[in-house]
Structure formats: structure tokens, C-alpha cells
Amino acid sequence: MAAWLQHWLDGRSRLRARTRVSYQEHIDRFLIPHLGEAVLEELTPARVQRAFEGIAAHITPRGQQVAAATVQRVRATLRAALNTAVRERLLRSNPANGLRLEGGQSARPVVWTEQAVANWRSSGVRPSVSVWMVEQTRAFLDHVSQDRLYALFHLAVMTGLRRGEVVGLRSADVDLERGAVRVVRQLQAHRGQGLVEVAPKSAASRRTLMVDHTTVAVLRRHWWRQQQEEAEDHGRVWDRGGYVFTAVEGGVLATERLSRLFRKLNTSSGLPPVRLHDLRHGAATLALAAGVELKVVQAMLGHASIVLTADTYASVVPQVAREAAERTASLVLRDAGRVRRQVRGRAGRRSGVLVPPGLHRGPTTGTPRLAHVQRWL
């Protein structure tokens, strides 16, 4: 199996570099230790099941059990390798198809409400994916307003650009007259190659975003500062075709360096912790809270399917869920008194007795109770 897995990966010449690294890690860390000595032609579903029970029990260097989502991705790598073996008639069927694994759904973003912050401060345990409320987001932007990369954080908060997408923006991708930002590439760190320009994550990720006039003004100030202050201070000419966001010396802004800077700024702000990537989740949740349609949020994030957007974000903002409940209650109860009077009137006429309105004042028919509900709404 060890020889086959490596042979299979070496033959995948059209893989993206990041995908190849991921497959290689799955093979080296999980599949070879648990299946490497097995004979390919003798592999059975029971043997694969035992191997994945061992993989699921694996402890990471941080002392944590491997996440269920990771186990699911390793299974996907093995299935792809064995599907190739089936096509080449080395196996009659794929023994990894019937694996019974724990669900590996991605973590849903948790909003830093007052209760969530209190729980985190008392327990020290933070959600794996978390987003700031509106006031917290505003406080962070105020805190970093004098940082040289303020425009980057502002743009990420407003648009939900991925880390690699925002550092991969070139001047030609930003049209300040139209207020448009085109996503046509991203920067990724590849082992042994440094930062490499690659295509967006998917066809849907290749998109054009419209930004508000305040964001346009922020980007104008950023460009002026790069051209007039930083370039002159460091004795260089501003590269009009270069990256929008750069290191202080004018070079490419490394993604990991940006993440470290963000963690440092997050800590100094005193706000509850989020990851740099969580600004993307925050942009989606804040847009939904502002009443932006789900389809528009999907396009903004570059999701290939609206199902992913809905499953991840549709119920994450408390205000959105609460307002939806209020609107539903208002729709149902708005004309409840008139409807009940009509029903009672029809019933009275059928029985030959007119029922005076307001005669029955129980918990489901009395008008005083309805008035109380309407005042609450």
C-alpha cells in the first residue's frame, strides 16, 4: 500500500500545489503508518475500518485527538487512490467505500455575545470559529486605524476576502472610480517555494466585488501613503503594477506574517480572540445582519453553492434569528383579532345565536391578551 499510495500521488500531475501537499501529509502521517504494510490486492473493508479506527484515535503534537473532519479528508484521499486501483483492475471494488466514520462537519461560527465572552473568560475555552459583534468589529477598526495596514483589515472586514486573496491584490485589480475589486489570484505559501501566485480557489472565487465609498476613500489614503511616504522614506519608486498591500520594505506581504500581526493587534485591542480568517466569517454574518440577501452574500464570499453559505451563516447572528421570529409572529398575529371575530360570527350565525364580541376572554380569545402581544411586538 505504501508503494501504491506514493505511485498514485506521483502520477497526479495536474494537482494544485496546496492539494498535493495535503495529500502527501495524509499519506505520510496517517495512511502509511496504519496501512503501509498491507498488500493492495488483499485489502478488505474490515482492514480499512480498523485502520481508520486507529487514525481517529491518533493524538496530535498539541495533545488533541485528530478532528473528525480531518479523518474524513484522509478517507477521501484513500478513496481517490483506491478508485484509481479499481480503474487499473488491481482491485475489483473499493474497500474504502463502506467506512463508518464519525461525522466531520465544519465548525459553525459562534458570535461573541456577552454570554459567550463571559463563558470564555471563566473557562478559558474559546470556540474554534468565532466572529465579533458589530460593536466589537467597530472597536477593532478604531484600534488599528493608525496601523499601516489598516486598509487591508478594513477591506477584509467589509468584503470577506480570504487571506491569500487580499495579499494577492494588485493595483490593476482595484478600480477606485467604479468602487470595484477583482479577485483573480491569491498568494499561497508552498514548501520550498515561498509565496506563489495561484488561481482562486474555485471558479466561483474568481469574482468582482463592489465596495462602498468609505472603503474607496480608505484605499485612496493607503495608496497615497505608500506612494508619498513609504516609497520616499525607503528610497524606492512606488510600483504602480505591484501589490496593493506590501511589507514595509515594499516586498510581498507574507500570509503568515500577516496572521501574526493580526493576532498581536487582536490581543492589544482587548477584544475576544478571533482568527484572521474569521474576519471572512464576520463579513458574512454582518452582511446578513444588515439585511443583505443570502444570494448576494454567497457571491461576495465566492462560494460555489448557496447551500454552503446557508448552512454556515444563516442562523449565526442572534439579531437575524430574533428579527425573523418577530416578523413571523407579526405576520401570524397581526389580524388575529379580526379573524377570531369573523370565526365566532360565522359560528354564531350557524347556531342561530349571535356571539357578542369580547364575551369569551380566555387565554386564546380575549382581546386584552392580543393587545399585550402586539405591544410586545
Results as ranks from 00 to 15, higher is better:
Arg361Glu: 14
Val181Trp: 07
Arg257Ser: 14
Glu53Trp: 05
Phe140Lys: 13
Val320Met: 08
Gln72Ser: 03
Ala85Val: 02
Leu149Gln: 02
Val353Met: 08
Leu308Glu: 09
Glu232Ser: 13
Gly194Trp: 06
Val157Arg: 09
Gly242Met: 05
Asp142Met: 06
Arg29Ser: 05
Leu169Ser: 07
Arg338Cys: 12
Ser22Tyr: 03
Gln105Thr: 08
Arg126Trp: 04
Val355Asn: 09
Val174Tyr: 01
Gly302Pro: 06
Asp278Tyr: 00
Ala247Lys: 09
Val353Lys: 14
Gly352Phe: 07
Gly179Glu: 09
Glu102Ser: 14
Gln105Tyr: 06
Gln226Glu: 11
Met210Gly: 09
Gly242Lys: 03
Ala284Leu: 11
Ser130Pro: 08
Glu249Met: 12
Gln188Cys: 03
Pro356Thr: 02
Glu41Tyr: 05
Gly270Gln: 03
Asp335Ile: 09
Ser351Asn: 07
Phe52Met: 10
Arg341Lys: 11
Val21Gly: 09
Leu370Glu: 06
Ser93Val: 09
Arg62Met: 10
Gly250His: 01
Thr137Arg: 06
Gly270Pro: 04
Thr19Val: 08
Arg108Leu: 15
Val66Glu: 00
Ala38Glu: 11
His26Asp: 11
Ala314Asp: 02
Val248Ser: 00
Glu135Ala: 14
Asn97Gly: 04
Glu135Gly: 07
His360Glu: 13
Arg62Asp: 15
Ala204His: 10
Arg92Lys: 07
Gln115Ser: 08
Glu102Phe: 04
Ala139Arg: 11
Arg12Lys: 15
Thr309Met: 03
Ala51His: 06
Val157Met: 11
Leu15Lys: 02
Arg75Leu: 00
Tyr150Trp: 13
Ala2Gln: 15
Thr365Asp: 10
Val125Lys: 10
Lys201Trp: 07
Gly164Ala: 08
Arg47Ser: 11
Ala247Val: 10
Val134Gln: 15
Arg346Lys: 14
Gly54Val: 00
Thr84Asp: 09
Leu35Gly: 01
Leu265Pro: 03
Leu187Asp: 04
Ala107Ile: 00
Asp173Tyr: 00
Gly362Gln: 02
Ala3Glu: 07
Arg138Leu: 08
Asn97Ile: 10
Arg170Thr: 12
Ala17Ile: 09
Leu31Gly: 14
Trp120His: 06
